[in-house]
Simulated assay, not measured.
Amino acid sequence: MNKKNIDNSVIGDLVVRVKESDQKAFNTLFEILWEPMYSYACSILMNNNLAKDIVQDIWIDFWQRRNQHDIKYLKSYLFKAVRYRCYNHLRDNKFNKIQLEVAYKVSIASAIDQNNDAIELSGKINTIISKLPRRCQVIFRLSRINNIDNKEIANRLDISQRSVENQISVALRKLRKELALARTLFF
């Protein structure tokens, strides 16, 4: 299996199999992701043995709690775990000046995390919008996605401007409610 060309859907399928206690799927994930995780930990800690220990602990924890997680983006989850464990180690132990400088230079939110979060949020918003009544969806998309003003929308759809405003309010209320609920469940 070519490690560089593994996409999120393949990893997602392996995660599902791991939840079912499939040891081969776990070994495949481990083989694909261990090296990049180890390199990332080394770049923060600058201690190969400690980096190995932290990455091993993360994999052990992942296996032991495999049924308790609903992980959509495993790479993002594991790299966050590496970062937090490394930072916690640096915080709890004495470290040298170079390690301190590296810790400050490492970005808090990696590009992979931000990209996956943006994709997930966009998908959630599209799902919420698709559950709105058809007329509400059309008006909301014209207003918020196509940036058309309310008066123009009213003229195009041959309805009152007040109706446009009401439909946008309904859509925004629904989005706020659903996204607040998702945020509460997530955090």
Rank of each mutant, 00 (worst) to 15 (best):
N155Y: 08
I112D: 05
L179G: 08
K124T: 15
D13E: 14
E152A: 11
S169M: 08
Q56K: 13
R173H: 06
F186E: 15
C86W: 02
I129D: 01
Y84P: 00
L121P: 00
R83M: 06
R134Q: 12
G12L: 11
K105Y: 03
Q167N: 13
F187D: 03
N27E: 07
V10I: 12
Y40N: 03
L90Y: 00
W59M: 15
Q64N: 08
D57R: 15
I98D: 03
I139F: 02
L157R: 12
V55D: 04
W34D: 03
R65T: 13
N47L: 09
H69F: 11
K72E: 05
K52R: 15
I54A: 04
F140Y: 05
D113F: 05
S169R: 15
S130P: 09
D92E: 13
K174N: 07
K4E: 08
R83P: 00
R141L: 14
G12K: 07
P133G: 10
V102G: 03
N115R: 14
H89K: 12
R144F: 04
E178I: 07
K4Y: 09
V102S: 05
A111F: 08
K151L: 14
I32S: 03
R135V: 11
E101D: 08
A182C: 06
N126C: 07
A109W: 03
I108V: 11
E120G: 04
Y38R: 14
R183K: 13
A111H: 07
W59Q: 06
R83S: 06
S160L: 02
R173W: 01
N93D: 02
L74Y: 01
R134P: 00
L100F: 03
A180H: 15
I60G: 07
R144A: 10
G123M: 09
N115Y: 12
L132N: 00
Q23F: 11
K94V: 06
L78V: 08
V106E: 10
N147R: 10
N166C: 09
E31Q: 12
R176S: 05
K75N: 04
V106T: 15
N67T: 12
K97A: 08
R156A: 07
I159P: 02
L14H: 00
I125H: 07
V55R: 11
I112Q: 10
D92F: 10
S76C: 07
N27F: 02
D158S: 13
R85D: 02
Q167A: 12
S9Y: 04
N146C: 10
V18S: 01
N146T: 06
A154N: 02
N48T: 11
L175M: 12
V82A: 12
W59S: 05
K4T: 11
K19Q: 14
C86N: 05
T184N: 11
T127M: 14
N47F: 00
N96P: 01
R17D: 02
L90S: 09
